[in-house]
Amino acid sequence: MILARAAEVSRRYGDTLALDRVSLDVAAGELVGLLGPNGAGKSTLVNLLTGLRRPSSGRVELCGGDPRRPASRRTLGVTPQETGLPASLRVGEVVDFVRAHYADPISRDELLDRFGLTDLVRRQTGGLSGGQKRRVAVALAFAGRPEIVFLDEPTTGLDVEARHALWEAVRAFHADGGTVVLTSHYLEEIEALARRVVVIGGGRVLADDTVEAVRGLVAVRRVSLTTTAPLPELAGLVGVEHDGGRTHLLTGDADGLVRELVTREVPFTDLEVRPTSLEEAFLSLTRTPIAA
């Protein structure tokens, strides 16, 4: 069963094309990571699928209906990218407020316990630390016993311990059959949770594959060298850049590339191997068409 679907969806903000004919199906029980740099269109896609915005063209579906209809959102839980809790309300009150919107919500104590928030129940949200607020915002997504949750960069601002505790809670939800769509710009977070990764950049789906396959795509290294000779055909190249006298070769397998340079007797000096940032990897992905 498909719980969330985007079919050829585009979304414009004025002159900017935030999403460009994106198609995505999320089946019940999946844990999908949306990976991409800031401004890639991840949040826009989440906002369309949760009914906050309407697509400029194309169609979105949530639990078989239009996400803008309240009935389609009965089994939806959301943690938005930006945490905003009513400052003067207590944590327990915010939880009760959200629970009141669902037919069969989880009990307040159980929810707080699951996310390690029991001690904060009487605290006003305005007095919480950024990390505590974030944990409350994530917990709220699970208040209505959802079938599907959208977590938009859920661990932003959390320390390592809190991040791991939160991952545990997400895993437990998924193990019980829950469906999760998670956005992140950390490959590490996606790797820790998801089996399927959808790489989004420049408003398009660049890759939709297993974590292993995508890690190969985005774990790109940069091999830089100075050479006067023209380069032969090299295996496993993702991209080539020239910068003054330097040549930068982007590859998923730096060891293999260096070995090949040596065996083919390419005359090079000043060899340098550096990992690329996720951003650079995305740039190379956007430049080279990837057969997903």
Binding site: T50, R73, G84, L85, A137
Partner: peptide, 14 residues
Amino acid sequence: AQPWDPYVRTLPTG
């Protein structure tokens, strides 16, 4: 102006 407002719109109510 608060991000709480769009969040409430994702809850199952008009």
